[in-house]
Design a protein around this nucleic acid. Structure first.
Lengths: 190, 190
DNA sequence: TGTGGGCGAGAACGAGCGTTCTCGACTCTG
DNA sequence: CAGAGTCGAGAACGCTCGTTCTCGCCCACA
């Protein structure tokens, strides 16, 4: 098997398992079984489990943000609608059967207290996400602070959807975000 | 040593340690050392670690909500100010040196995928908290939906404060909550 | 004073898991 | 064909940790 393919299969298995069960609950042997890659090669590609965890988080970070941005770019053009599209994307995500909350919030909750690398990965991911929302907000004519407030709504929707098990928080957050944005940009209330 | 005192010392140690480092990262021997209670008595009072985890979450649930309610009750009377006081309380919490996010969000992220008891405890806690915010919102003349939206802001502030390490999200969330509430109750924008 | 039961301190046990090693088979090269 | 390197499969190692056991001590009670 190709090295790149092995690497991909390991990361695929790691992502599925770490995300579904938590990082500490998944042993390297389970990743071997799920990926079909021998333990020896796993350790050649990722010298330790924490390297694998870092790679898992790094790949998920870029893919998650890219998927979101692609969805937003595909949404019809008005800046306010682009912001609303963020919450539509979140709702789709929340409704997926394997949705289990934000991988970074989960990882931070699990290992943030003991692993500086995991804590830093979560911080970077959230920084990027919040900066993206601030961009969308300012493009829609609002202040960056409104973007920050909308980011809080998005974060709250993620944790609430995860814990409650329903995608409804996405709609609530979307509506609140629209209210904040509409008010700020001075348009009439619906 | 008194049984009740031993129980309290164990729970005190468990809360400090589980909250700071995560549940799986803290062994029973560490709880023995921190509490000064012998392993034998720990297991007499809590037959397994998961029993201790459940007791930890249960006690933290009631204490957290009681502390919040007491602060809100002490705040000056107008209903809208009571809601704002929630975010003042959050800001105080976030600024504490041992703040490490919401224990229930953290526990859910760590064990929600493998422990139905932990997942249920998180769900109950968040249900209660959100119901409380809906009460405060309706008492302030807004709809229950506004209360739900404000709950999302509070949740988002908790995770963002934890990951970013600053208490600033409390103020942002407070301002957004005020905006939502003010708009809804028809008062003039500041 | 003898005795039995409970307690503290710490060892011990057994399972899980991260990581490495062994062994046999296959491949590539001279 | 010979030999050396590489790889897959799985065992093995060492550590951690949840849980239980042992042993010596103390105290209540006859």
């Amino acid at each position: 098997m190709d090295t790149d393919l092995a690497r991909e299969r390991i990361l695929d298995a790691a992502e599925d398992l770490f995300y579904a069960r938590g990082i500490q609950a998944v042993g390297m042997d389970v990743i071997r079984d799920a990926s079909g890659v021998t333990l020896r090669r796993v350790y050649q590609l990722f010298p330790s489990k924490s390297d694998l965890v870092e790679a898992y988080l790094a790949r998920r970070d870029t893919r998650w943000l890219q998927s979101l941005a692609a969805y937003v770019d595909a949404a019809a053009g008005a800046p306010a609608e682009r912001l609303a599209a963020v919450f539509d994307w979140l709702e789709n995500w929340f409704a997926q059967s394997d949705f289990h909350g934000c991988a970074f919030i989960n990882s931070f909750g699990e290992l943030g207290g003991t692993s500086p690398q995991v804590a830093a990965a979560a911080r970077r991911h959230k920084d990027t996400f919040h900066a993206y929302l601030r961009e969308l907000a300012t493009a829609a004519g609002a202040t960056a602070d409104i973007g920050t407030q909308i980011a809080l709504l998005a974060e709250g929707a993620m944790t609430t959807a995860a814990i409650s098990g329903t995608p409804a928080p996405a709609r609530q957050a979307r509506q609140a975000a629209q209210t904040l944005l509409t008010l700020e940009t001075g348009r009439a209330k619906r």
